[in-house]
């Protein structure tokens, strides 16, 4: 009988069967074995092989399985109005702030700058793929996940969303509010989904609507230096009062 392991994201259980026993190590403390025969997600050898083919040669097969599981996990969570979102999520003054951008754009750099400049002020929630949750009252919450990126920094914390900062590398430091028509195309690619079904598309759009209708979003064009981080921090604090991101 196959061994089944369960993780919980935003309080919702997801049961896995792993092809490779070493895949479990990447989940760290997130998994516990469970009884029974039913599971929610299991990769096929072909799916893992396809994922591996798109990764650097040095990556082992079990890491490819771990990476493959991101998409089906996120699509599974959409039924609970939750979704993995590509961002660094950190806690500041009781709220979760999302630094989002394509990989290699400086999300972690901005987090590390802030932590260096204002020690003890912020805490990492999730370093790569936090779980966003749309609640019945329309609020959006941010939860940690085991997918914490190459730095592997994360925690088990959750917090209501404060706001979203879209990062873009540039030759100057500049920040401004992101309007909805700019934000929509930029954010679509940051939600993790195959977008295979109408239900999945509608669930992602409902989450995006919650994010953009109730919480501010900015675009930070930046050099990745300390000054850009101070600019971001001061503008967020000024425009939100620092501890209440709702608009």
């Amino acid at each position: 009988m196959e061994k089944i392991y369960q993780a919980e994201y935003a309080g919702h259980p997801v049961r896995y069967v792993f092809l490779n026993p070493f895949t479990r190590q990447h989940f760290k403390f997130w998994l516990k074995p469970v009884e029974g025969e039913e599971y929610d997600i299991k990769a096929t050898p072909e799916q893992v092989a396809r994922t591996l083919a798109h990764m650097p040669e040095t990556n082992p097969e079990y890491y490819a399985e771990y990476k493959f599981l991101i998409l089906p996990t996120s699509d599974y969570l959409l039924r609970y109005r939750c979704c993995l979102f590509h961002a660094v999520a950190f806690l500041w003054r009781g709220r979760a702030w999302l630094l989002t951008a394509p990989s290699g754009t400086g999300k972690t750099t901005q987090f590390l700058n802030w932590r260096k400049l204002h020690p003890g002020e912020i805490t990492m929630i999730c370093g790569d793929l936090p779980v966003l949750e749309l609640r019945d009252d329309g609020s959006v919450w941010v939860h940690s996940s085991n997918w914490n990126g190459k730095e592997g920094v994360g925690s088990f914390q959750s917090a209501p969303l404060g706001g979203t900062i879209l990062l873009e590398q540039g030759g100057v430091n500049r920040i401004g509010r992101l309007n909805v028509s700019e934000a929509i195309p930029a954010l679509f690619g940051q939600f993790i989904s195959e977008y295979e079904t109408e239900d999945q598309i509608r669930a992602v759009c409902a989450l995006m609507d919650g994010m953009l209708s109730r919480y501010p979003a900015w675009k930070l064009v930046n050099l990745g230096d300390d000054a850009s981080t101070e600019l971001m921090r001061s503008v967020i604090a000024e425009e939100t009062g620092g501890n209440d991101g709702t608009v």
């Binding site: 909805v180 929509i184 977008y195 295979e196 598309i201 759009c205 995006m208 609507d209 953009l212 209708s213």
Partner: peptide, 17 residues
């Protein structure tokens, strides 16, 4: 497979995979 949806008052057509 093409879904009409609305995000913050913006109408979108989103195509399935």
């Amino acid at each position: 497979g093409v879904v009409l949806t609305c995000v913050c008052g913006e109408w979108l057509l989103v195509s399935a995979a």
